[in-house]
């Protein structure tokens, strides 16, 4: 409760400071729109449904892209951990893909897929696959060999050992890899929506982009706030409970 009070108080103080700076009139309202006008824009966009529609479009792209990324990344990571040859070929590509900010794919993706939607999906997938594959491979490599010996002495075959021991033992790595993959996907999608023009479906990034075109900085700031809120909320819903469950089992995550 106390921590919530501190957080709320801090945010309110930040808002007041912002309002103070804006009313001092040092900068033009285009450079620093007052909080009231950002709130006004947010209210109007929420009322006419623009915000909800854009958030939905963005979330749909994100979840589809993330799901494909996990679907590709997990098997790639597991195969990398199992086979040296696979690790030296596909694994090499995955590591390369992870160090490339995936929005760099946007120019090519637009040409290849012509449909803006598919191009953005591609950018999200490329942002996700690498980090998930690498985390899964690291997770499998970090499994204590004694766990495998325990399973084998109990009569577990190869498949059962993987399914019941290696995979669950690597879960902490896999979950943190998925969390990182999600963060990459979120960032790359925002970048992609800002630089790839939206034809039919406007996402949050497009709203921000058109705010810039119209010199409507209240809109730009408003969309930024929504992006932060949505990002934090998803992190809470998707990962916080999984992490809590892992910490409870492994006995980790408590400050010493």
């Amino acid at each position: 409760m106390r921590r919530w009070a501190v957080r709320t108080g801090f945010l309110l103080a930040l808002g007041l400071l912002w309002q103070g700076l804006a009313s001092a009139g040092v900068w033009s309202p285009v450079l620093l729109p007052p909080p009231a006008s950002v709130l006004r824009w947010l209210g109007a966009a929420a009322a006419d449904g623009t915000l909800a529609a854009a958030t939905l479009v963005t979330l749909r792209r994100l979840t589809v892209g993330f799901a494909i990324g996990v679907g590709l990344g997990l098997p790639i990571g597991l195969l990398c951990a199992r086979s040296r040859a696979f690790d030296d070929t596909v694994g090499l590509l995955a590591r390369g893909a992870q160090s490339l900010p995936s929005v760099c794919w946007a120019p090519l993706a637009v040409l290849w897929f012509t449909r803006a939607d598919l191009a953005m999906l591609f950018v999200v997938v490329m942002g996700t696959v690498g980090s998930i594959a690498i985390a899964a491979a690291d997770g499998v490599r970090a499994v204590p060999p004694i766990y495998v010996r325990v399973a084998r002495t109990m009569g577990a075959g190869g498949a059962a050992t993987w399914l019941r021991v290696v995979l669950p033992a690597s879960l902490p790595f896999v979950v943190s890899g998925m969390k990182q993959g999600w963060a990459f996907a979120w960032r790359s999608l925002m970048a992609a929506e800002i630089i790839v023009p939206g034809m039919h479906a406007f996402g949050l990034g497009h709203l921000l982009h058109y705010g810039r075109e119209l010199h409507a900085m209240d809109q730009v700031l408003g969309v930024m706030i929504v992006i932060v809120v949505v990002g934090v909320a998803i992190d809470r819903v998707l990962f916080a409970s999984a992490e809590r469950a892992l910490h409870r089992r492994w006995g980790t995550g408590r400050s010493p």
Binding site: V150, T153, M154, V165, W250
Partner: peptide, 18 residues
């Protein structure tokens, strides 16, 4: 090969945290 008629107990407990 290994078989569950001959089970090993190791020095480390090697219990599964999950």
């Amino acid at each position: 090969g290994p078989g569950r008629d001959r089970v090993v107990m190791f020095q480390e407990h090697a219990l599964f945290p999950w």
